[in-house]
């Protein structure tokens, strides 16, 4: 049972009705739909999402326990002069407003958990089919390699969005359950209403999801290089860790603006008043650049390679 079979059976009805001269765009959509269904029905995917959903729960409970004796999280450390050096961004505000748990959870998962999950999905995209021996059957279907690659990439991006929203919604639920909600203060010190805060949270979730575009493209490219799914996943996650480490080395500051992870934390700029767009724009630009470069490289590789399995 390969995707190709599913795709065909799903694609059949619209074609018999219309029989248009050009390839029906719905055909691509149905391939996409079947890819989505296969991806999200995997136990592996569900386990990844469960881990992501658990992060805000753990953070929320930890903050709740720490602040139950009246002290505030983070800032109260000895000296305090450095100013909240420990913990992810926004953690000191959680106990006052549960909405901040969304921001903290995203800040906590963005450096590692989220991209790791994306790396697994993206790395598996082509190489997984290859190692399972299903890739050649997929290519027997008249989708063409380019379209199959696009579908795989679209599926991975959908997973980026879903994974981010899972973190955000889990955090919002836990935050509402454990802490008070209400008007909140931007990090610039101005107040905004809870509704606007929710809007910003949604915007932040979208930006975080968009921040993963680069990793997704990189993972897809690596996935076209090998026919071992595990190797592709491990390489993607390994690269992710390497880049994160290199991003911390001051001597490499000239290179760092070109790392896909360099501007990840810029999503916090959406909590400034007025919003500081510079780094956000740079972040999205970098992601687009990675998508273009590695997307093109993946295309070049995938459309020319010999499919042996």
């Amino acid at each position: 049972m390969s995707q190709a079979e599913q795709a065909e059976t799903e694609a059949a009805p619209p074609r018999t009705q219309k029989a248009p001269p050009r390839p029906n765009p719905l055909w691509t959509l149905s391939l996409f739909r079947s890819e989505l269904a296969i991806t999200f029905r995997r136990w592996r995917t569900l386990a990844l999402l469960a881990v992501l959903a658990a992060v805000p729960i753990v953070v929320g409970i930890a903050v709740k326990i720490e602040t139950s004796d009246g002290s505030s999280a983070a800032g109260g450390g000895p000296g305090g002069g450095g100013g909240g050096g420990g913990g992810p961004a926004f953690i000191s505000q959680i106990s006052n407003n549960g909405l901040f748990l969304v921001f903290t959870a995203l800040a906590a998962t963005l450096p590692f958990f989220l991209p790791m999950a994306i790396g697994v999905i993206a790395g598996d995209a082509i190489a997984g089919e290859s190692s399972a021996g299903t890739l050649r059957y997929l290519l027997v279907a008249p989708a063409g390699r380019t379209r199959l690659l696009l579908t795989k990439y679209a599926t991975t991006l959908t997973f980026c969005l879903v994974a981010t929203l899972v973190v955000a919604i889990s955090a919002l639920t836990v935050g509402a359950f454990l802490f008070p909600l209400g008007d909140l203060m931007t990090i610039s010190g101005t107040s905004i209403s809870f509704a606007e805060g929710l809007g910003r949270a949604l915007l932040i979730a979208l930006v975080v999801a968009a921040s993963l575009i680069g990793v997704a493209a990189l993972g897809l490219f690596i996935s076209t290089l090998t026919s071992s799914g595990i190797a592709a996943m491990a390489t993607t996650v390994g690269l992710l860790i390497t880049v994160q480490i290199l991003d911390q080395i001051p001597q490499l500051s000239a290179l760092q603006p070109y790392f896909f992870s360099h501007y990840w934390l810029s999503f916090a700029d959406l909590m400034r008043e007025p919003v500081y767009w510079d780094d956000l724009v740079k972040n999205l630009g970098i992601q687009a650049l990675y998508a273009a470069v590695f997307g093109a490289a993946a295309w070049a590789r995938f459309t020319t390679k010999d499919i042996t399995a």
Partner: peptide, 23 residues
């Protein structure tokens, strides 16, 4: 980074707010 330090002067009040430590 992901925080802001503001000094606000409004009328006869001066506030300084550090969002990283929420102080």
């Amino acid at each position: 980074k992901a925080a802001e330090y503001s000094v606000i002067h409004n009328g006869d009040e001066v506030w300084a707010y550090d969002s990283a430590s929420n102080e």
